[in-house]
Amino acid sequence: MESKDSVIAAFKKIPVKVEEVDFAQRGYHLEIRLESSQLRAFAELLRTGNFYLSYVSGLHLTTGIDVSYQFANYGFPCRLLAHVSADADNSLPTIADIFQGANWHERETKDFYGVIFRNHPNLKPLLLAEDMEDLKPLLKKEQALKDRAAITRVEKIAEDKPAPAVKKEDA
């Protein structure tokens, strides 16, 4: 894969939902929504496409936990953010055997959210102490939980966003 367009074309094989977003506003190029069954195929595709894993992280919503994977490429500017909802038993397949760097990121996500990564080689607590396994610090309280719509960018904001900084030269 040599460019963003070829990446989008390659994703048609899986097939995943890809949305091209404005880099200037979002800081990444492609937003992807995945089913958990597609995750490993998706990761393998990126692995062969010479992407690297930037991080794995989570997001606690009313519908459960969303795990997001960010990938980028050394060769051309293409940062992509993939969201996967954890399965009903709060687990996901691991990608630590495809991207070894995911090993620690998945352990961290397990620490913070309690998401189990199936077939992970060593899912022991990484940043938290061994006896704090029930803590799950980033799970939100029920009243603080939001649904996906509440944290999705409303397009009209993009149109009448707060006026760009008024320059003081005229002041």
Binding site: Q25, R26, G27, Y28, S54, Y55, S57, L59, S68, Q70, A72, R79, L81, K146, A150, I151, T152, R153, V154, I157, K161
Partner: peptide
Amino acid sequence: PAGDACYAVESPRGELVYHLTGDGSDTPY
């Protein structure tokens, strides 16, 4: 505002990324 944004900078040690998700309040989600 509701929505999310990434910002990557080059720290002396490599790629540093902030990924911020807002929900319309003044506290990040």
